[in-house]
Design a protein around this nucleic acid. Structure first.
Lengths: 138, 138
DNA sequence: TTAAAAAGTAACAAAGTCTGTTACAAATCA
DNA sequence: TGATTTGTAACAGACTTTGTTACTTTTTAA
């Protein structure tokens, strides 16, 4: 299966950005995403490490955005929660006796890098503010 | 983990393209990729369905390219063996009571489509002939 | 006609990943 | 001091992926 962490993260960030409340606890985020609070907290840690949010403990604690939605790109959210490879590589080393097998690894790495960067470029074009606009449009 | 099918498929196509032999059996392909012949045969079926190769049974059977390497893009190879979503969506339906949860699905679909298309555009720029050139360069 | 070689296919095992869950420790506030 | 919330560890269940075995079907050639 594919990971849904990016979808969860965009959802969480959108809720925080449309925030009527200052601090949103993981329990509330979990309700709207429809998952377990621990799943959300694990996400929040990654978003926090990426500098996108802050979290606070204790009563009235929770998560808040550190930046305005216009200043948060989807690339930042993506790279915060998803390790960045679009597709996988050979799990076992190919035959070093075959001229293709001997060098395919390096070539695949270049292809991977180009694919990763293309994805990042596209995600860089979209901000959390764009997501909010789309949400309002319906 | 991520699927390595695309890497395997590019490897296989490169071997077929650099083909000293007309027909390459799955057993030989499996050797250079370093995996099991059945894994290769499953790939070959998908490449065949995509119109990129032909396979033949019986002695001296195996796989052959149907087109010249210059006419095969990496996008074609990719879409032949990888279902085309860069990242996953919510496994459980989000809360329909939350204004974000209610509409995030559609918005994520648009984001997904843009990401998928960006990846395809990049892979479309590279052909199997480019891969062969890179392999020779080292 | 028969034997050998190859793809096609089904069934299953093993490993890994991912989400979800429970439980508890640490921190914070009233 | 007690309530609330994050942080964190441990584990279960489901799913995906690769690899493996075994068998059928097709094809070639002796």
């Amino acid at each position: 299966m594919q990971s849904c962490r990016f979808a969860f993260a965009v959802h969480v960030m959108a809720v925080l950005a449309s925030g009527k409340s200052d601090c949103c606890p993981s329990s509330r985020l979990a309700q709207t995403v429809n998952t377990n609070p621990v799943v959300i907290r694990r996400l929040l840690i990654e978003l926090q490490d990426a500098g996108l949010i802050s979290t606070f403990r204790g009563p009235h604690g929770g998560a808040v955005l550190k930046r305005k939605p216009e200043k948060v790109t989807l690339r930042e959210i993506h790279s915060a929660v998803d390790q960045g490879n679009v597709f996988g590589t050979h799990p076992n080393e190919p035959s070093q006796e075959c001229p293709v097998g001997k060098r395919i690894g390096k070539v695949m790495l270049r292809i991977q890098n180009r694919a990763n960067r293309a994805l990042e470029r596209e995600l860089e074009k979209m901000t959390l503010a764009d997501v909010l606009r789309e949400l309002r449009k319906g």
